[in-house]
């Protein structure tokens, strides 16, 4: 069956990656996965700083994408002028079509200077007390990577959220309206809870995208192998580590990169499987079709 190719592909994926990663585990054990010292020249392959960087950029991206994406999705499904909803939805979704390398270039050349001169100083003066914004304003770094990632995952969040919000049956809306609910109460108390499983799916898919994004992050994060002391500091993520050191890697280092890719793949499969289960269940119960970007 031609369709079976996917199941085979997924298994082949994991197997191929695992065979290349095995030497890393046999030579280094599993402890390198949480070692914090990355120094290939002296055979130190701790990938913890990159794992932490991945989580940090993803948290920044998702923390911005969830509220803004939800607000946008509500606006597109229920609040914007009817005639504008479809074209504006398309416009937001087109953000997903822009190649990630273009985001990286734009982030590096256009947004990074803006961060250095304006965003970071402003943010530091307001939120400096949190201790998260120490060090010089340099543009590239964790924060910029997180914000660029946010822009990149936003369309995923919006497209799916809008569909699942719009799929909440209209009689629920009328039921709430007829009880004297304001427009916002209808949205907040009936529509959002009614779509919560699908929204969870949108959140999960956006998280998956943020975790795996490579080239845009590699261009704007500053690629450092150290745990970032500040949101403004350079950092690295697992994908950016792989892409930036793949060229010169050989031997054990290459195996470690494959092991890191294996972790990324397994996490990616897990996150996506979870997301699809969420979105599916909405699709099955809701009437409207759910398009998944």
């Amino acid at each position: 069956m031609a369709g079976g190719i996917f199941a085979v592909l997924l298994i082949a994926f994991v197997v191929a990656m695992a065979t290349q990663a095995v030497p890393a585990f046999s030579k280094l054990g599993v402890s390198f996965l949480w070692g914090s010292n990355w120094d290939p020249a002296h055979n130190h392959f701790g990938v913890l700083p990159f794992a932490v960087g991945t989580i940090e950029t993803t948290v920044i991206a998702v923390a911005l994408a969830v509220p803004i994406g939800l607000g946008t999705a509500l606006a597109l499904a229920y609040l914007a002028p009817r005639r504008l909803r479809a074209p504006l939805s398309t416009a937001v979704e087109l953000l997903a079509a822009v190649p990630s390398v273009v985001y990286g270039l734009w982030g590096l050349v256009a947004v990074a200077p803006l961060f250095r001169t304006t965003v970071e100083p402003q943010l530091t003066s307001v939120l400096g007390w949190t201790g998260l914004l120490g060090g010089p304003n340099q543009g590239v770094g964790l924060l910029l990577a997180g914000v660029i990632l946010f822009i990149m995952v936003l369309p995923t969040m919006v497209a799916i959220s809008r569909d699942v919000l719009a799929a909440v049956p209209h009689d629920q809306v009328e039921g709430a309206m007829a009880l004297g609910a304001t427009r916002w109460q209808v949205l907040r108390k009936v529509i959002v809870p009614g779509a919560r499983v699908g929204l969870l799916g949108a959140f999960t898919l956006a998280t998956g995208r943020a975790l795996g994004e490579t080239v845009a992050v590699a261009l704007v994060i500053g690629n450092s192998a150290h745990l970032a002391p500040s949101l403004k500091a350079n950092a690295g993520t697992i994908p950016s580590l792989i892409v930036s050191s793949f060229g010169e890697a050989s031997g054990t280092q290459l195996n470690v990169l494959f092991a890191a890719a294996l972790v990324l793949l397994v996490v990616g499969i897990g996150v996506n499987a979870l997301a699809r289960v969420f979105v599916r269940s909405v699709k099955r119960s809701g009437a409207a079709s759910v398009t998944v970007a």
């Binding site: 629920q172 009328e174 039921g175 709430a176 009880l179 809870p193």
Partner: peptide, 17 residues
Amino acid sequence: LRSRVGMVFQRPNPFPT
């Protein structure tokens, strides 16, 4: 006004969540 004039619909529509 709608808090003074209630409504029951054709199909039962309790809030499922």
